[in-house]
């Protein structure tokens, strides 16, 4: 029996999220036109909101499920295992953390009336007006607002009437580039420094959860490919150089899993930073090697494994790459 990844957080939540993500990935893989892909993502996002995922961490009083971080992590793990191309961490973890205590806005978030993108860097505020440029901001398909952190303060910017350029990331997720000059915004909290740092860390942690799940599937698919592909009259899986490469990928994946589990058990910023730092190393290694041992197939856009590899590569750059994490750890 060939390798099957074991989830960190097995159960119904994981299974349901995984099934949803697998079906979504299949539909998305058939589409190539950016507009068609964006439309498909919009349909999938509506389904996610319908399922109530955005309310996982939100108190019941605001229409949420009052769940724990582990509940959300189980969703992220299931979604990540098939590379769901939607802003789960941003909407389900970062946004509710930033909005803690703002009951009306939390209720809007759960109900889908508030669909924010999160801008943690790039903009500054002066007298309640925002200026600056933020590029590559992950976004839901139809963002209504931007939740903007400017140093220690937190603002809500209504995107109605504000123009922005839209792009697709290497992992197929939607982003926007925002450029504003003195745009009026609502100050939500002047003293949000702690909350902003916490929100960013939870984003990083859930990104690690998604990525480690994607790595498990990626290794599984790589093994399946090597077992099936014949060259020199034998399955590639019989060649030791490739077998060792896969063993190294597996050990890197297991080691990272240990760090992510430790960070889930005790989500201190240091535990999260170490996990994210290691994701930079281990994720890059697993992604690169998965592409390499697939040969030319690894270079093709269609291959599910190459999609997962791009997802894992992208994950490093969300909520602080390895050098950002290292700088924090070294400064502490």
């Amino acid at each position: 029996m060939a390798f099957e990844p074991k989830p960190m957080l097995p159960g119904d939540t994981f299974d349901a999220a995984r099934r949803f993500a697998e079906a979504s990935a299949l539909k998305l893989a058939r589409l190539h036109e950016p507009a068609a892909r964006a439309a498909e993502l919009a349909t999938q996002w509506a389904a996610v909101l319908e399922l109530g995922w955005a309310g996982t961490l939100v108190p019941e009083a605001c229409g949420g499920a009052d769940g724990t971080l582990l509940d959300l992590a189980a969703l992220a793990e299931g979604a990540g295992s098939a590379g769901l191309a939607l802003p789960l961490a941003a909407t389900c973890a970062v946004a509710p953390t930033l909005l803690a205590g703002q009951d009306a806005l939390l209720a809007d978030l759960v109900a889908g009336r508030l669909q924010p993108c999160i801008v943690l860097d790039g903009l500054t505020a002066e007298a309640g007006r925002l200026s600056g440029r933020a590029v590559g901001v992950e976004t839901p398909p139809a963002p209504s607002h931007a939740l903007v952190a400017t140093g220690e303060a937190l603002y809500l910017l209504d995107l109605a009437g504000i123009g922005f350029a839209r792009h697709e990331r290497i992992d197929g997720r939607l982003t926007l580039d925002l450029e504003v000059q003195g745009a009026p915004a609502t100050l939500l909290r002047p003293d949000a420094g702690e909350v902003i740092r916490r929100a960013r860390d939870l984003g990083a942690l859930l990104t690690c959860v998604e990525a480690v799940a994607a790595m498990g599937t990626l290794i599984q698919q790589t093994i399946g490919y090597l077992l099936a592909r014949q060259q020199f009259g034998a399955a590639l899986a019989s060649f030791q150089a490739l077998r060792h490469r896969v063993a190294e990928m597996y050990v890197a994946y297991r080691n990272l899993t240990g760090l992510v589990q430790a960070a889930l058990a005790e989500p201190s910023w240091q535990n999260i930073a170490f996990a994210k730092l290691r994701l930079g190393e281990a994720g890059r290694f697993v992604a690169e090697q998965a592409i390499q041992v697939h040969g030319g197939m690894g270079m093709t856009e269609e291959l599910p494994a190459s999609h997962l590899a791009r997802r894992v590569l992208m994950a490093e750059f969300e909520y602080g790459d390895r050098h950002t994490q290292a700088a924090r750890l070294l400064a502490a």
Binding site: R254, N255, L256, T257, G258, L259, Q261, A262, F274, A275, L277, R278, E281, A326, L329, L330
Partner: peptide, 12 residues
């Protein structure tokens, strides 16, 4: 730091 991250993973 990279080595420490790996050791932390191994510790788990």
């Amino acid at each position: 730091l990279l080595a420490e991250a790996e050791l932390r993973g191994a510790r788990e």
